[in-house]
Structure formats: structure tokens, C-alpha cells
Design a protein around this nucleic acid. Structure first.
Lengths: 107, 107
DNA sequence: ATCTATGCATAGGTCGCCTACGTATAGCCT
DNA sequence: AGGCTATACGTAGGCGACCTATGCATAGAT
């Protein structure tokens, strides 16, 4: 039912890392955050999100622990690690470079 | 040996259609055009390009015919069809919307 | 003769994303 | 009491885009 669009492939990690750089959040909250900031254009599917979080954790860019969410339910909160912050910076730079290159072709 | 980067996934069709909207070209020429306009940032791999061209042709967005290239070799020249032009317009719009949404999250 | 650039194409693999499920709890409405 | 919705995590299976590697073929340069 969502009027939202699929992601631009290859940007999910970036969106997650950026979101976590602002605040530690649980998965569901990350999805909502991205959707809200993008004015409902971007939809982070759960089947994409949770595997992505596991990949990021395996790479050491985020770490997680169980906590109480404000609503009283248990939730796994993720936070950026130091390598994760470096990774975010690098990916941001690479993304800008790619977008600029694509724009140069489309102009 | 290329210092070039992989594509941002999901943008290859767009880059091809845009290139063909400027001029009819053969596959190899499309790859060169994209690479040149992007200042060598974007690299269109042949193993991605030719299947993509076949997909685009199947969808009716481009059509092709064998011709002589300026260098005297045979080459399959592609040109945009009318539906292809519409598709390009639609994809351009969708791409801009996605980029804007992503930027809103990354800002 | 050999190498490089031009040019097309396929086979096979990887990987990211999505659809569809399944589980579970809190809160609200009837 | 029962059912619905929102919150919250997670997996299984599939699809499709992209890449690597390979093969073929010719023109021009060295």
C-alpha cells in the first residue's frame, strides 16, 4: 500500500550509517527515520533492513544491544562504532563523487 | 587497470538512454561516452553493457542495426525509439526524486 | 609478427534488495 | 473476550542487476 519507492540500490548502508550518526536507534526506528526525512519517498523494507544491519555489524561498523524502547517493548539498539564513522565519511564522499559523475552524463 | 569506479546500481539504463538521446551509437561508443563525460569516474563494463542493451531492446526502448563504424569495422548501432524517449523522461524524473530524497536523509 | 584498440557476446557467479512469512507484545476498540 | 493495529525482530527464497572471465574477430601500429 505504500506510495513509497524502492531504494536506489547501493545506498542502504549509507542511509543507515548516517541515521545512526545522528542518534542510536533500533531497526524499526531507523526505517521510520529514513521514511520521514525523505518525505515518504524512501521505504526501507524490513527484509532489507535487518540483513543489512547484520552485515554492518559483521563488518564492525555498528554494534548493538537489547534495550527497552520508549513503548515498553524490547528492541535492539544500534550505534556507530569508530570504524563505522570512518566508513560513513568515506561512503559519503564516494556517493557524492558518483552522483556528480552521473549528473555530468545526464546534463 | 581502470581507476574508474563501479556504477551506482540502477543507473545503467538511464545512462544508456541518455547517451542515445544525444546520438545514435554502438555499444562500445556508449561505454566510452559515459566514461569520458564522467571524467573517468564511471566505467561501463562490457559484461553489463551488452546484456543491458538487449534488455532495453526487448522492452522496445531502443532499436539497433548493423552498420560500418568510422574505423571500418562492423558495429551494432542503437537508437532511441519513441517509447524509449518517454522512458528516459520518466527515469530522469524518478532519479531526481530519489536523489533528492536521499540527500534529505544525508543532510 | 605481435600488440593494442576496437567491437560484440555469453556463461557463471555474487550480492543486494524484495516478497512473504513467522513470532511476539502493547494498546485500543467493540 | 476478541480482534485489530502498531511496534519490533527475524528468516527463507527468489529475482535481477552487475561483474569477472572468457571467447571471437578485425584494423592499425610497432
Amino acid at each position: 500500500m505504500a506510495q513509497t519507492s524502492p531504494l536506489l540500490p547501493g545506498t542502504l548502508d549509507l542511509l543507515i550509517l548516517k541515521t545512526l550518526s545522528v542518534q542510536s536507534l533500533h531497526g524499526y526506528g531507523i526505517a521510520q527515520h529514513v521514511q520521514r526525512l525523505s518525505a515518504d519517498v524512501l521505504q526501507v523494507e524490513e527484509g532489507s533492513l535487518y540483513p543489512a544491519l547484520q552485515r554492518l555489524q559483521l563488518k564492525g561498523w555498528v554494534r548493538s544491544k537489547w534495550k527497552q524502547s520508549p513503548t515498553g517493548r524490547r528492541a535492539r539498539y544500534y550505534e556507530l562504532t569508530a570504524p563505522g564513522k570512518k566508513q560513513l565519511t568515506a561512503e559519503l564522499k564516494g556517493f557524492d563523487q558518483l552522483i556528480q559523475a552521473i549528473r555530468a552524463v545526464l546534463a
